[in-house]
Computed example of a mutant assay.
Amino acid sequence: MHVVTGGAGFVGSNLARSLIAQGADDVLIVDDLRDGHKFRNIADLPILDYMDRAEFLQRVETDAAFVQSMSAILHQGACSTTTEWDGKYMMENNYSYSKTLLHRCLEFGVPLIYASSAAVYGDATEFTESPGNERPLNVYGYSKLLFDQYVRRLSLTDQQQVVGLRYFNVYGPREQHKGAMASVAYHFNQQLKDDHEVRLFEGCDGYDDGEQQRDFVYVDDISALNLWFLQHRNVSGVFNAGTGRAQSFNDVAKAVIKWHGRGRIRYVAFPEHLKGAYQSYTQADLTALRAAGCDVEFRDVAHGVRDYLDALAT
């Protein structure tokens, strides 16, 4: 049984879709559907079963046979709202929950591949998986970093696999439920359809208007990366998950405008509440990932946005 936590969410539902496309008929989706809109992400997927996150944790803690029935846990479930400042809530969801899964996976030799985040780097300018570069700007980033640090202290046997993937700016289908936390590609597309314009932030941190840069990575490539590790169970560690190429918000806007064949860019004032808590530049260093033997390729913004909008149009 392949378990995908957060499986009704953005990355999780795409990952479940990829598993099923490769022939998996035993995908268990774990999530919290208090936001019932997320059902749309899994309505078209022939999954084995669905389980609430609280029930799943209880089963993992108390039912050894249940854990032993798992081929792997692909742990995508988390509170991913970077503007959430309830630290107790964040640590319970992103740290304590993950530790419980980790220890049961280690006990029974179940591979655990989990979602970390580039938010661990905060205002760093170097993005190698090194403690010297890790200085998160919000409690979300800290919750992810703390679990990475916990994993780093493990001494794994040959029968144990634990992989943390530090997702950079992921975009693609099945993210519409995320609202304000959906990707800029999603928001730019909506803005252009509604108002015939795309709105970008004015310059900040020394960057010109719309020239803040992020490592934007297409969700299908993130799914392919997870599946690569699932197929290479001798590889463990914490790795960056991005394209290795920083591109500007202007690049994303122009790709959206090009796909539609119309529209313009308008720059708006940089929000006060984001000052001091905003990453103006990210670029995944893929040295460790490539050294581990991973050959997954990542598409650039021009191709990724095209594929995204093609998918939305079908």
Rank of each mutant, 00 (worst) to 15 (best):
K38G: 02
A291M: 05
A277E: 09
V198A: 03
N169S: 13
Q22K: 15
R264P: 02
E92N: 11
V27W: 05
Y186G: 00
C204K: 12
D221M: 04
L19W: 04
A8T: 09
F168V: 04
D307W: 10
C294Q: 03
A224F: 04
S223E: 02
M70F: 15
L312Q: 14
V151N: 00
V67M: 11
K254C: 08
R299Y: 01
G87T: 15
L289N: 05
I222K: 02
S18R: 15
A288F: 06
Q159G: 04
L28A: 02
F201K: 06
S248P: 02
Q231T: 10
H103N: 15
A292F: 07
E202W: 00
A224K: 13
D307K: 14
I73M: 10
Y140I: 06
G87V: 15
G293Y: 05
V170E: 05
D44I: 02
R306K: 13
F108P: 04
G164I: 09
M181I: 10
Y207I: 05
S155H: 13
D49L: 11
Q190C: 11
V30T: 02
R233E: 07
Y89R: 15
R233P: 08
D215G: 06
R104D: 05
V301Q: 03
G109H: 11
V110Y: 01
L289P: 02
D285N: 15
G172W: 03
Y89S: 08
D205L: 14
G23H: 06
